[in-house]
Design a protein around this nucleic acid. Structure first.
Lengths: 345, 345
DNA sequence: CTGTTAGCGCTTTCAG
DNA sequence: CTGAAAGCGCTAACAG
């Protein structure tokens, strides 16, 4: 493996000149630059990443702090990872994956102090997240997918949950539904201050109180069985329900089953919309689920780019970006026939 | 950030002694080791990864070559990534994700020659894979999830597709099915020499010819619509079909729909088993799909460990590991009522 | 515009 | 069992 000094010799210049030519750190005459690049080509020279990093104090490696969330990993997480890796690479960075326990800040401290990583992308952020406090305290560069309570001085991208819920409600209202259920994730996730669970539910509550919408809310574990139970219990509380908004993909098959058990059909007798979901999942169901798809690839990409910009400019940029989910009507929502029947009576 | 020389000074020893104490590379008296570790603690010393890597010529970083397969990314891929990252970390390695176009060996060459990576895990391997040829030629350490045609001297883990198909067939035979369809992935994937598509289908063909099983085989794109069409066309060819084996998760909803369209019910009138699938996906369907689940986490973990072992021992180990899928009966397979009816006539 | 040189923080001979 | 010192391959002053 040839080194920079080999290149320098072959091009008949000083080693540092080669370095400057490569990095563009200072002007080089066209003529010598030609010679240098020719020499590099002939030798098949590749700069040594570690040596460069050691000398420049910048590894051009960033890490994605990758928790194993309570509810298990899904397509969403995958797309964060791949889009972040893509974005990193396009900007000349490498992305390392760091699967971390959420509750071990000490490990995080050690990791950041190895000198391996220039910056960090944190995902699955909670309102009060000790990882964030630690990183702030260490003054270590990072960006977030999601957000915590106090975000001054931190860059993040997140989903606009308020709008997402509003869009789903509007979609159902437009179809004539007036009694709508909201199925959240589990209570423990909610109580841990997980942003999506908190923000979406809060907005749904606001809509209920502001518009007089008849709603029912439930927490629900991310299993079909839990979905089945939650649905049954909601219907017992509010028998006039004709639609449900579920921010809980994995509970949906249970809901569908429960609807079928009652002898109802989707969407004729009951409508379902999944929010913060994905086309991939929506299409696995029969009928295909109407969902608002999370812009996962954009989130991963933007979080990466925000971080890299921060690293390159050396400044504490705090960009706050909220992206909407896109509602796609598929086969699981339709006009509310029960209200139509009532109206025609 | 304290350095090794700070630690040495504080402990009153030579810098090299600290290094030996940390790496255990040579015997250190208990007494001085104590002093050194104490000094490290007091200073909060962390070895600098880049410096260590540069000096030792081993970065302790490995990469996962991460293609974006034609059929899109799924849960399976996610679990490769996370389990590989976990396994790497447990062994003191970092895992970088390298999203690579399959068809650009030049990029791969550059990447491996940066000195950043000690070794590589390659996934989505095809029978004749130019990435593999290149790595071999470069003599660069790697392991595979999956396998190519010529595997001498290479370590890999893969699924035992032959057994997986056999198990699925046996399951259906045991339920009385004798006319069974096999739904593969797309023809182009098959023709590119993608192992799962080739091996599974080959085995199914063998079973057909050896046992006189009545079978039909189809390629199918990974969409519900394609599944619907393929099913319809298979049934036209062989109207006595009562069961289908699908190695194509995403086509299954289309199959289910097609079955429903005929007025049939799953599993009473028709059985479906998904192979090389996942519990996660199986549970998204109604009824939940009987599947043989791919041991994705084990595959990712073992590929990582095989690679690391190779790196540590410096020897060309060629372990070949084949893991079975585990068949889990859920709601989509049942006894063949049509044959029962025929028998009772 | 180009050369010289002192490190970056660690590993690893070579000596003792 | 411990020290001293020579790099690993590169960047970035400092000098011209």
């Amino acid at each position: 493996m040839p080194t920079m000094s080999d290149v320098a010799k072959r091009a008949g210049v000083a080693l540092s000149t080669v370095s400057y030519a490569i990095n563009g750190t200072r002007p080089i005459s066209d003529e010598t630059r030609q010679r240098i690049f020719a020499a590099m080509d002939e030798l098949g020279y590749r700069p040594h990443a570690l040596a460069r990093g050691l000398a420049s104090k910048r590894s051009r490696i960033i890490a994605l702090l990758f928790p194993v969330p309570e509810r298990g990993l899904g397509i969403t997480e995958l797309e964060f990872v791949t889009s972040a890796a893509d974005a990193a690479r396009e900007n000349g960075y490498n992305l390392v994956l760091w699967p971390a326990e959420l509750h071990d800040p000490e490990e995080l401290r050690q990791f950041t102090q190895q000198g391996l990583i220039d910056g960090l992308i944190v995902m699955e952020v909670r309102f009060n997240d000790e990882r964030i406090s630690l990183l702030r305290e260490l003054n270590f560069p990072f960006s977030m997918i999601g957000r915590c309570a106090e975000t001054t001085g931190i860059s993040y991208v997140d989903i606009n949950f308020e709008q997402t819920v509003q869009d789903a409600v509007n979609h159902l209202l437009g179809l004539g539904h007036t009694h709508i259920a909201f199925l959240n994730q589990s209570q423990s996730v909610f109580e841990s201050g997980y942003g999506p669970a908190v923000r979406a539910q809060t907005r749904f509550e606001q809509i209920m109180s502001r518009t007089g919408l008849h709603g029912v809310i439930r927490f629900c574990h991310t299993t079909p069985r839990a979905g089945h139970e939650a649905f049954t219990s909601m219907l017992a509380e509010q028998p006039d329900l004709t639609a449900i908004i579920a921010m809980n993909e994995r509970a949906v098959p249970g809901i569908m089953q429960a609807i079928a058990d009652k002898g109802w059909r989707v969407p004729d007798d009951f409508s379902i919309v999944g929010i913060v979901s994905s086309t991939r999942m929506a299409e696995m169901m029969v009928p295909p689920l109407t969902t608002s798809d999370a812009p996962t690839a954009e989130l991963g990409r933007m979080a990466t780019e925000l971080l890299i910009r921060q690293l390159e400019t050396q400044e504490q940029s705090d960009s706050h970006v909220l992206l909407p989910c896109r509602l796609v009507q598929r086969g699981s929502t339709g006009v509310c026939t029960r209200n139509l029947a009532a109206a025609s009576r």
